[in-house]
Each structure stands twice: as C-alpha cells, then as structure tokens.
C-alpha cells in the first residue's frame, strides 16, 4: 500500500476507498502461489501528494509570533496559545465525538507547566510517582495533538497534513517549546529522559530546525 506513514488504509473518512484497500488485502488469503506473495496496490490515496507550500494556510485563529527564546515568555506564550485554541479543539471533539488528546494524565495547562519545569531545569522536584521521561513523551504528544485537532477545524477547508505539521513546528510557540527542550533534555543525566528527547520528541524531518536555532 503506497500510502503515507500513519495511514495504512489511505484516506480518512473515505469508506469506499478503505473498503477497496481491505478487499484487496483480504483477497491475498485466497492466493495459493506462496510462500512469498508481494503485490503493489495500484492506486494512490485520495489527497496524497497535495501541495506542500504554506500559501493559503490559515491558522484557526491568528496566533502571535512564537515567543522569544526567553524561557518564561515561551511557557506563557504556549499557555496563551492553548487558551486561544481551546474553543477550536473543543469543536473538534464535539464534531468528531472523540479526541486523541489525553494520553498524558495531566491537563494540558499542567502538561505545559511540567514542560516548563524541564525547560527551566530549576530544580522543581518531580513528584515521586511521576516518571519525567514518560511524562515528557506524553505531554508533548498531547500538546501536538491538541494543536493539530484545533487547526483541523479552521474555516475554509482542510489544510494538507504537511501544511499542518509545518505550521506546528514552524509557526507556534508550542513547536518552539519542544525544540527548546531538546538540548536541555538530551543533556540530562536521566538516560530515559535523554532517550525520549533524542528520538521521540521531534520528527526526523523537523530536526533541521534544531541546527537553525543553534546557529
């Protein structure tokens, strides 16, 4: 199936296309020319390969430019962004009757404040029952999903996945916060925290931004 990673059935909310993919896969059970059977699915997913430029991409609401590198400003800026996006994310939840936000057991504001304590490395004690590496992983997951769900509800039609991802990492303070956490957490003495920061926080295709921040 020649579909983007994360989309093994090709296109969301396209039942006929998904059904065709499923029928094609299940038909392999009736083949007898094994043991190894390799077949390519002949169709691309609807919408795959959409234009990747940011022209026309409009945020649900106008967000201020990402905050300065000042750490206090950055946390406040993310809290403010999240507050502004909350009605749109609520709309997503109500429209789809579901949300992918919630893998972290902290509320989003508390998750942002937790990330703030890591960023500031200010000695704020982590509660003994809270694993900082696990919390980092799921707090950043919730933060990203919250923004992407909110952005999906913007008026004027859906942006492409690439546009949404570029918006999050390039245009929001939340993206700037996660990028700012990378050097702090990869320098940690905690091997799990270091591992999450190195491999499970920033997609490979976005890591070039780390170099540009250091330059």
């Amino acid at each position: 199936m020649p579909f983007d990673l994360g989309r093994p059935f090709g296109a969301p909310n396209d039942a006929p296309f998904q059904r065709d993919v499923l029928r094609t896969v299940l038909a392999l059970f009736e083949r007898t020319d094994g043991p190894v059977i390799l077949d390519d699915y002949a169709k691309d997913a609807p919408g795959q390969g959409a234009p990747e430029n940011m022209e026309g991409m409009v945020c649900p609401i106008p967000l201020p430019k990402p905050a300065s590198p000042d750490k206090t400003d950055l946390i406040q800026s993310v809290l403010s962004e999240a507050e502004q996006l909350a009605p749109w994310q609520t709309l997503f939840r109500e429209t789809h009757n579901r949300s992918t936000v919630g893998v972290c057991d902290l509320s989003l504001p508390d998750a942002i404040r937790f990330l703030g304590t890591l960023l500031n490395d200010d000695g704020t004690p982590t509660p003994p029952d809270r694993n900082p590496a696990t919390t980092l992983r799921f707090a950043t997951e919730d933060l990203r999903n919250f923004y992407l769900e909110a952005a999906a509800m913007r008026p004027g039609g859906a942006a492409s996945t690439d546009q949404l991802i570029e918006w999050f990492w390039g245009e929001t303070s939340a993206g700037a916060l996660i990028l700012a956490l990378h050097p702090v957490c990869t320098a940690s003495d905690n091997p799990d925290l270091k591992h999450v920061a190195a491999d499970q926080m920033i997609p490979r295709v976005q890591r070039y931004r780390l170099q540009s921040r250091q330059a």
């Binding site: 296109a11 998904q18 949300s99 992918t100 992407l148 999906a152």
Partner: peptide
C-alpha cells in the same frame, strides 16, 4: 513521532 497522526484524528478506520 515519525508518522502522521492527523488521519487517525479524523477517522479511526485509517489505522
């Protein structure tokens, strides 16, 4: 973090 989540957000059947 290297695969798309937005399809899953829209429709569980994508995965």
């Amino acid at each position: 973090v290297n695969f798309d989540r937005t399809g899953f957000q829209q429709d569980i059947n994508i995965v």
